[in-house]
Design a protein around this nucleic acid. Structure first.
Lengths: 336, 336
DNA sequence: CGGTTTTGCACAAACGCTTGTGCATGAGAT
DNA sequence: ATCTCATGCACAAGCGTTTGTGCAAAACCG
């Protein structure tokens, strides 16, 4: 159907192999410059584009990297996707998205990444065990993976934001503004699997240093606006004396929900209650008061992660695993 | 590397062809039931999954459909993507996303869909000429395409929301609530290419019928929160006597921006100015006042479009083109 | 002008799978 | 016991590339 390498070869009067050599710039196969020109010209004229299925099959690589994230309903991940896609493209890779349908919540890959044989994977903060569910036992061992978005203790390549420092900045900011009852709104119960969450730790640390009593407000359910709203409502329903005067939200989407909840309950932000988010998504800048938040530079993270990954793919990276922490930045809005 | 069909065949003690026949349920090739069982059992044991590159190359189809949309920064398109992905999966297709990076605005495909030889395409409201830029002249002619999201005049398959009726409902709602100065906030100048935009038409029609003077507020730039905010600010800056008492926004993202703009300027919603959006994205339900909007049932649209597309792919659809309009539904929030 | 090197390209195997053809073997019929 | 048929599977070509080997012709050397 489409024009194949054979068509081009026939038209030029050479063999398909020759066309391939020319188009791939193979220096070993010395092709006369005149021939090269003709091949390139005719290929362009005919609008030839190599079939990537065949190409990938032949070369044993797809020039595609998988991006595994937990769902695009959080606009933060849209940023991640767009950033990764743009940067990957520059490096000559395509991105294949594998996101959990937000509806179902927990990720249940159907093996997309495995079946299409991606060369490598950028994996958002999913436990390494689920890597196997995604790639299969075999590929999980041989496919280079760079974890992103979480600090890890194990021997893997990863790039994360400096979540601890971000949490510190956020909490110290609240402390320095004079807030005394600062709560943390989190999807994770403290003391559970995720008890080492750096933001949690930083929050607790700063509270302790300031002589404040930490309070964790546990979200019921997912990290959604709805859950945030419920939490906000619940906070607002407390008598003023028992209500935090500031909350640090695990991320911006939650913060948006909390904001909505407390506002609908008639509280003023920041007069009655201050709110700090985390991530720096665009949406949170369109509340009546721009949200104070901790910006996580997605571009820098993706760039770093892709850098590591592509070096692994090219076999340029020697065994030692690479880890990196990307600095975060406090964005002071008007919600504090 | 990964376990191939040969490995399975060797282990079972049959030829690769036999394994293929069994696994694909080929009735023509009568394989003894006992053999079938062994093949299936061993294949499962070994964790065999056919390499989709090879499979697609062999069969001449990828079981993948392309989804072409203009960017995920508008959460509406996240809904479209998730819906399409879930429904496609049910029908045995994978979805390959091709979205314009929001940053660049205008779409500039790098031929992803063409190179990977998708079987068909779901295309959001992009002009048919740009189809060629996406698929190439050749594939553009042979690849089934179903356009979604816009009413078309040409002879193509398409599924759209009933935008006219949606616009009518929104405007009539405002009229019936007693608003007399109703403006339309739009990214398109009236009288331009898009002057037939059904929402525009409906708005104008309803205004005329009610004896109201239509006013188009033109957005400067893209369909973003930022542009909406600027428009909102500008409206709020007008003296009360020259200010609309209600605005119908082209979509929810714009409405969110407008809301933010007028609120920051001190106006109350809906007392000073009412706002209606379009699309029904989740985000817009988390303003202090839930946004009145026109819900466009994304799932129904995707289902219908995929239905048409898969029938075309299976050659089940006779020549007559299919078009469909999906009904919309007014969601009355508190912004009116 | 014979011999050596270089140049330029054709050739073919391989990637992993699908699918139609063909050939044994065994069962059934006479 | 022979013939016919159905059964069960192996076989091989093909999908569109890539890539290493090999061989002819042309260029160089003395």
């Amino acid at each position: 159907m489409a024009v194949s390498i054979k068509d081009v070869a026939a038209r030029v009067g050479v063999s398909p192999g020759t066309v391939s050599h020319v188009l791939n710039g193979n220096k070993e196969a010395r092709i006369a410059l005149a021939t090269q020109d003709r091949v390139r010209r005719i290929a362009a004229e005919m609008g030839y584009r190599p079939n990537r299925l065949a190409r990938s099959l032949g070369r044993g690589r797809t020039d595609t990297i998988g991006l595994l994230i937990s769902g695009l309903r959080n606009p933060f991940f849209v940023d991640v996707l767009e950033s990764a896609e743009a940067l990957a493209l520059e490096a000559g890779y395509e991105v294949m998205l594998d996101a959990a349908p937000s509806a179902h919540g927990t990720y249940q890959g159907h093996g997309k990444l495995r079946d299409w044989a991606v060369d490598g994977v950028l994996m958002w903060a999913v436990s390494s065990q689920s890597l196997e569910r995604v790639l299969g036992t075999q590929a999980a061992q041989t496919t280079p993976v760079v974890y992103i978005g979480a600090v890890r203790k194990d021997d893997t390549d990863w790039v994360s934001f400096d979540l601890y420092d971000g949490g510190r900045q956020a909490t110290e900011h609240l402390v320095s503004r004079g807030y005394r009852r600062i709560a943390y709104v989190s999807p994770y119960a403290f003391g559970e699997d995720r008890h080492e969450e750096p933001r949690h730790l930083a929050y607790k640390g700063v509270c302790a240093a300031a002589g404040l009593k930490p309070e964790f407000v546990l979200l019921h359910g997912e990290e959604t606006r709805a859950a945030g709203l419920a939490a906000g409502r619940a906070l607002a329903a407390r008598p003023a004396s028992e209500r935090p005067d500031a909350v640090f939200c695990h991320n911006d989407v939650i913060a948006v929900g909390v904001y909505c909840g407390v506002r609908r309950a008639g509280l003023r932000v920041p007069e009655d209650i201050a709110i700090v988010g985390f991530d720096g998504v665009e949406e949170a800048q369109y509340l009546e008061v721009p949200l104070t938040t901790v910006r996580t530079p997605v571009d820098a993270l993706c760039r770093h992660a892709l850098n590591i990954l592509s070096r692994r793919l090219n076999g340029e990276a020697p065994p030692p695993r690479e880890q990196a922490l990307i600095a975060t930045e406090l964005i002071i809005g008007s919600s504090t």
